[in-house]
Design a protein around this nucleic acid. Structure first.
Lengths: 122, 122
DNA sequence: TCCATATTTCCATTATTTTGGAAATATAGT
DNA sequence: ACTATATTTCCAAAATAATGGAAATATGGA
């Protein structure tokens, strides 16, 4: 990933509302969530929500899928992984046994969710 | 790391000049670089540079150290690691074998610099 | 076709961030 | 004390981002 792309992704996530949107979409997986569901969960006026969804989509962090009248948005894990790779590669310590040793996440992985998505608060 | 802190760090990095500053400081290690060196490298007017250094410092991404008249800035690896941990934990795929499998950086680690001794994380 | 629903786009207003010159501060040397 | 260097803070202008009401678009159903 090049710096310009990383910068776009960082800018996409660097806003409270957008980070909240993205975090809601992460556990939602590939099916994603409808714009309306996001709007209700975050109590956002439609225009404001739409603005941030557009930003995230332009930042390459979200995919959009239409089903009837509703538009579903899903987190683009590939983009997120690429951002993490960029940060690990470019913004981590060079010494002391390589980057992995220093940058490895100190927390265990998220638990797999059950069939009905349990959502956690913001 | 809580969301508010992560947001601050993301906002810190989400600017071309600040990301450039941070990327210059990463390989510079604990001694860091003088403000003047950064200004010359990036060709920034002093006030502008100082503004961004302050932003990065307030975002917890930089440490400051004075030596005589010059101020040295260094990347705070701990903060960066915490940000990576947050993103890995909160913004990565939940399924398919856990987060590490999905979010592991697909690129090899940076090469260590041969000249200086092994350095510990800050 | 007409109406309802889901969501976006338009756009003006407001809010926030960024910029950089000039003045101020900090330190060192003479 | 004076001068030079390194860097910051002040501040106002310029640039950019965010907000949300209202109008527009897209789709589905009667």
């Amino acid at each position: 990933m090049e710096t310009k792309t990383a910068l776009t992704a960082l800018t996409g996530l660097a806003h409270a509302t957008r980070l909240a949107i993205f975090r809601l979409l992460v556990p939602a997986g590939a099916p994603g969530l409808a714009a309306g569901q996001l709007g209700e969960a975050l109590r956002l006026p439609p225009a404001t929500l739409s603005f941030h969804l557009k930003e995230l989509r332009h930042a390459g962090l979200l995919t959009q899928r239409r089903a009837g009248r509703t538009l579903y948005y899903a987190a683009d894990y590939t983009a997120m992984n690429a951002l993490l790779a960029y940060l690990t590669e470019n913004c981590c310590q060079a010494d002391a046994g390589g980057c992995e040793a220093v940058c490895a996440p100190p927390v265990p992985a998220r638990k797999r969710r059950s069939s009905s998505a349990t959502r956690r608060p913001l």
